[in-house]
Amino acid sequence: MDPAIYVCRYLEASYAAAHPDLTDAARELVRSEIERNPEAYAHEPHAQALVSYARVHARMIAELARMEELPDGEFERQRSRLFDETRLALFKIIETDRSCIDARLLDLLLADVPLDDCLRDLLALEREAREQIRCAHDDFDPEAPGLWRGANEDEAAARTLEDPQVIGWLHCVEALSQGSLTSARYRAAGTYAQQVLRARGYANHAEGTLFLALARLEDEDAFFACSRAIGEAAEESPWYLLGRTLLFYKLGRRKNARRALRDFAGRCEGGAFFLLNPTYLTPYLPVRPEVSEAWRRSHQAVWEADGIIADTPDFANWAATVEGVEAASEDFARRRGF
């Protein structure tokens, strides 16, 4: 989740708690003022650390977007410098407030260490964050629907969205899910994804990780049970549509796999192109970002499935032979200038 969203919600909730007589109109005004100038409402060290983190994160994302068209060598040099500068800024935030979980999480993800070492550090941070939340809130329960015992959906959503530590913890769990998928720990990836999906008020696509993990495990029953639980939205998910293709292919059901692949290529703009033309995607920092265009979500799905595709003999070559897939790829490339 974009820190600009949850940090402002936290500041708004803190202000409202200190001013219980606010009218709805006054609260709307406060919300607008916070979005315009959050620093003016960050009076406590924790709030100041959160606002600083939001600024550091926004700058990093903007700079990465600016670098996309650079030649490879220059891109690597500028990105390395940006990450060093970002880690220095994060160090200063963490030094001030170690309870800023997202700052610590992003620092871990930017560290140049082997994936297994990164996952070990992420696991330690997730445990620490979870225990901090439990100590502060007796009714917090990672296994409960909505994460809060006794809360209805609206209450659970509000409590999650207004608590940066809970958001930071969810980011840790989501990062663990992605890291587990990348490192071929598919059952762990699915377990972490299911934990994220219990949250309310926290926009995410953790179901994508779950679909891909279940497809790789060839667990057809669990895959379609997940689809039914999510409902109609699953039918438009590039992770579901690609995962279904991989699942049928791995199960040796080529006719079903061909139909599923044509469905993926037809429903997911850019899906065929990214499947046939693996294209670099900036790593998630710290978690899968929201996108402004549908084709970018297709790119995310294919990028996340890269290890599974590479581990599935001849899948990519087979996909190129399925009727309509190459044409869909070429059409997308022509329209989007790839």
Results as ranks from 00 to 15, higher is better:
D141N: 12
Y240Q: 06
A54L: 08
G307W: 04
W303V: 10
E293A: 15
Q194H: 14
L109H: 08
I309Y: 01
A124I: 09
E220I: 11
R149T: 05
A17K: 15
A333G: 01
G146S: 01
E33R: 14
E68V: 14
F274H: 02
D314I: 03
E323W: 05
H43L: 13
P278Y: 06
G168H: 05
E69D: 15
L123E: 14
R36D: 12
A206W: 07
N37Q: 10
A260V: 01
C172L: 04
G208P: 07
I93L: 11
R288F: 11
T23Y: 02
H171Q: 14
E131H: 11
L281T: 09
D138H: 10
L90N: 02
D2V: 04
D97E: 15
R228A: 14
A225D: 13
I133D: 05
V287S: 05
Q78I: 08
L88P: 00
V291M: 12
E326M: 14
Y6N: 02
G271M: 00
A13D: 13
S80A: 15
G266V: 01
F248I: 04
A328E: 11
L88I: 10
Y15K: 07
Q178G: 12
G208E: 04
P313K: 02
L170H: 04
R59D: 13
V7R: 06
E290T: 11
C172D: 01
I34Y: 03
E162P: 01
A234Q: 07
E330W: 07
D263A: 07
P286K: 08
L241K: 00
Y53K: 06
D154L: 09
P114G: 07
E232D: 13
L276M: 06
V196K: 05
F224N: 09
A199R: 02
D24A: 15
T86V: 13
G190R: 06
A193K: 03
T182V: 12
A26E: 15
E35W: 06
G208V: 07
H205I: 13
A136K: 06
A234W: 02
D107K: 09
F338G: 03
V322H: 00
V51K: 05
A233T: 13
D117C: 08
A157K: 00
S183N: 11
L275Q: 01
W295A: 14
P71W: 04
E162D: 11
R288Q: 11
L90H: 06
A49P: 00
D163Q: 08
M67A: 14
L106F: 07
E323S: 12
F332G: 04
S183C: 04
A305T: 06
S329G: 07
A129W: 02
Y41A: 03
E218T: 12
A18L: 13
S292D: 14
